[in-house]
């Protein structure tokens, strides 16, 4: 049976179809779930897709945190289930306190929409297990609030525990320590600003996201087998 991955859609999410297509092209079953659901329907992994959940009102991710589906996602994560937040999904996970720190507005006042190079810093995550440390991946970014910041203590913790999984080769937004993606202490919750789902076809400029999507499908299969 194909691995089932829930792709979460809030009002204002706009990357859910890209994520679902990238996953189904690789053989997984992607179920798009609306934010008012209270159950993940037996999914083996969760992707919180990018966009502007709840219009980014108050702050990106601030309202999404209260959507009914978030309780189910939190329980799933507490049990070790793989949860990935891409772009706005990363912002949602920080606002929900499932990942530390915050995404502030980009340094340099610019909305950044381009393909950037990212260095894989840790393979101990559900998104990078198939990559090699030091691999450079070309992935699109598309954000205004992507400038990762956290307290010096949190930064020290992230470094010491190998929880920075991706760094920008050429920092586009001012993120502290060039951070593009991190994971939680349990290593099953990952947030990143770049969009691997938009880099799953050479025709569209890069296939470098495929290694991440395959890693996620592996993690989902492992979670399914463990359940």
């Amino acid at each position: 049976m194909a691995t089932r991955i829930a792709v979460i859609r809030f009002p204002g999410t706009n990357c859910e179809f890209d994520v679902a297509e990238a996953l189904s092209d690789l053989g997984a079953t992607a179920d798009i779930l609306f934010h008012d659901e209270r159950s993940l329907g037996g999914a083996d992994a969760v992707v919180i897709a990018g966009g502007f959940a709840h219009g980014d009102y108050l702050r990106p991710g601030a309202i999404a945190r209260f959507s009914p589906i978030m309780d189910a996602i939190r329980r799933f994560a507490d049990e070790g289930g793989p949860v990935i937040g891409i772009c706005n999904g990363f912002q949602v996970l920080t606002e929900a306190h499932m990942l530390p720190g915050a995404l502030q507005k980009n340094a340099g006042s610019k909305f950044r929409c381009e393909t950037v190079e990212l260095r894989v810093e840790s393979t101990r995550s559900p998104l990078t297990s198939r990559a090699q440390v030091g691999d450079v991946l070309r992935l699109p970014i598309n954000h205004f609030e992507g400038n990762y910041t956290c307290s010096p203590e949190t930064l020290e913790e992230l470094r010491a525990e190998d929880r920075i999984i991706l760094r920008y080769v050429d920092n586009p937004n001012g993120s502290v320590d060039d951070i593009a993606g991190i994971c939680n202490a349990g290593r099953n919750v990952v947030g990143l600003m770049p969009h691997p789902e938009r880099a799953c076809n050479e025709l569209l400029g890069s296939g470098d996201g495929i290694v991440m999507m395959r890693s996620l499908i592996d993690a989902a299969s492992a979670a399914a087998a463990a359940a």
């Binding site: 502030q104 507005k105 980009n106 340094a107 340099g108 006042s109 610019k110 400038n147 910041t149 001012g174």
Partner: peptide, 13 residues
């Protein structure tokens, strides 16, 4: 308000 040291591109623009 943004804390001191937090990027404020709107303000600087």
């Amino acid at each position: 308000r943004l804390r001191p040291g937090i990027a404020d591109p709107e303000g600087s623009t």
